[in-house]
């Protein structure tokens, strides 16, 4: 049976999480088809066709799919998915919104947020905020799975030459419509895709002090994140939150500044390759996961770090 991977994109470009999801599909094994559902998204389908390991791209180009409304895309995935053994999507907010809806239409119990493929029907996934890893086996005929992108190394974006096939299904459930979007604009890399992430916690004291982190980030080509404590305190917007209830990141280098290290934060960053913690409280739990800990006042250490780099 073939595997259907749902592409993450913004109608202009294919998002990186798709490449990690295709990697999970390769680990399962089988023909990999990619569904690009959107509007005016032909270029995305072209990119998907070039991805290593993809044998076919299905392009559903219709106004009903422009904003990835779950009601419409899930219906499409439910219709197309009947012929597949596995349906995979990245465990992004888009994937998590749509995929369970498609699963229910197929009368399948989906498996969320997998971090490892044990076999074609058995997967590992974190539960209890990552405090426990469960190995789960599905008995459904179709496996509907969301994939935690950071747990799989992306496949190459080039090297494939799949055919693009148009899908002539326009599923508009007619119950929802897109009103608007407020996307955070930044020249820095996206949190979940960045090689280096610098996060600030309650120790930053206010939003203005994050300026220090932005300056350091610009020097390192890093993204800037925050702990839930910093978000709840109103220092920075929620889309910067790293943790179980925010974004899960696994960069090459993670620098935690003024973050104590609550379980819920650790769950979002502990798979980073190298972790640096800067905190003046030497008892802070963050030091128990840090490769390099610096017990220091962040207001001295961060500017000094910036000048020494």
């Amino acid at each position: 049976m073939s595997i259907l991977v749902i592409a993450e994109h913004d109608n202009a470009e294919l998002k990186g999480a798709t490449l990690n999801t295709i990697a999970a599909a390769k680990a399962i094994g089988g023909d990999i088809h990619v569904l690009v559902a959107g509007a005016g998204c032909g270029a995305v389908a072209e990119s998907a066709a070039k991805v290593e390991g993809v044998s076919k791209v299905l392009l559903a180009d219709n106004a009903a799919y422009e904003h990835q409304l779950a009601e419409n895309v899930a219906k499409l995935v439910g219709d197309l998915g009947k012929d597949y053994g596995h349906i995979l999507a990245p465990a992004t907010t888009t994937g998590k919104n749509m995929l369970p809806r498609a699963g229910a239409l197929l009368d399948v119990q989906p498996i969320s947020d997998i971090i490892a493929v044990e076999s074609a029907d058995t997967f590992k996934r974190p539960i209890y905020a990552g405090n426990v890893i469960a190995t789960v086996q599905s008995s459904d005929a179709i496996k509907v799975i969301s994939v935690r992108a950071t747990a799989f190394d992306a496949v190459a974006a080039e090297g494939g030459s799949a055919a693009v096939e148009s899908v002539d299904i326009a599923d508009d459930a007619g119950v929802s419509s897109f009103v608007g979007e407020e996307l955070a604009e930044s020249d820095r890399p996206e949190l979940t895709a960045a090689k280096v992430v610098i996060s600030g916690g309650r120790g930053m004291q206010n939003g203005e002090n994050f300026e220090m982190l932005y300056k350091l980030a610009d020097k390192l080509g890093a993204a800037v994140g925050a702990s839930r404590a910093a978000v709840d305190a109103g220092f920075v917007p929620n889309d910067m939150q790293v943790g179980q209830t925010g974004k899960i990141v696994a960069p090459d280098l993670y620098i935690a500044v003024g973050i104590s290290g609550a379980i819920q934060h650790l769950a979002g960053m502990k798979d980073s390759k190298v972790i640096v913690a800067i905190n003046k409280d030497e008892e802070a739990p963050i030091f128990s996961v840090a490769d390099y800990g610096l017990v220091a006042d962040l207001f001295d250490a961060v500017p000094e770090l910036e000048t020494k780099l």
Binding site: H67, F178, E181, E182, T192
Partner: peptide, 8 residues
């Protein structure tokens, strides 16, 4: 992921 979206 990127911010906020409003749907009706």
């Amino acid at each position: 992921d990127g911010g906020l979206q409003t749907v009706e």
